[in-house]
Amino acid sequence: MSDELIQLAQSHLQNIPLQVISQGAEAIVFTTKTHPYLPTSKDSHTEYIIKYRPPKKYRHPQLDATLTKHRTIAEARLLQRLTNIPEIQSPGLIALDARNGIIWMEKVGYELIDYDDKISSLKNWLWRYNDNQEKALTEEIKIALEKVGCMIGKAHVNDVIHGDLTSSNIIITEAQEACLIDFGLSYQSALPEDKGVDLYVLDRAILSTHPKYAEQYNEWLMAGYERGYGKDKKSLIKLKEVLKRYEEVRLRGRKRSMLG
């Protein structure tokens, strides 16, 4: 099944060496050292990300083509939107082949040498210290989590909803800055409801991925989130609305109605 998809991706990406790094229901993600159009030197270590949305056989082919194209474009558009908000770190868009469901982007993060060379997602970055309470609750981690929260706050001030805030979709860069990735479920919205749900998803994700320290981690994230709104009066009013809604969402869960 997976081999078939890789072959299909390869047929659209001839002469590009592909290495799978993640596969979800919607897309398969590759890395490569070959830039789509810039001459690359042989000993370059820079890697690029290719996100490929393969055709879904269970959908009508025409509908499938339209959906794939639209979702690919929506994600690329969001990357563009984030380029224009320089305070939010995000991977840059390199190339787009919407017809074939392919997005090329910059690779962010680095390999954690003290954690099996795994990618420096917030999840792995925190998990390194899971068995050591002293290390798991240091100032370094507090600062990083506040930065993460701050960045999410800035996204929300700009009405960008990530849609899938898990600790795997947040990258800690080598400079210990936060960077958001995977905008496959992202959209724009000014509604406190959507922002509240976004925060709730993050809260749940931290609780299930880092249960030992979730309470403290979430507290730091929220402190950063509030800072992300800045000191502007209008933003602070917005922040208050979101926090109020967030409390409501926490009480009732992610879905607004009990139907479906």
Binding site: I73, A76, R77, L79, Q80, T83, N84, P86, G92, L93, I94, A95, L96, A98
Partner: peptide
């Protein structure tokens, strides 16, 4: 580099 990123975004997303 920010200008380049913005330009590449515009080129890749034209007509989308």
């Amino acid at each position: 580099s920010l200008l380049l990123r913005k330009t590449v975004d515009l080129i890749q997303l034209r007509g989308c």
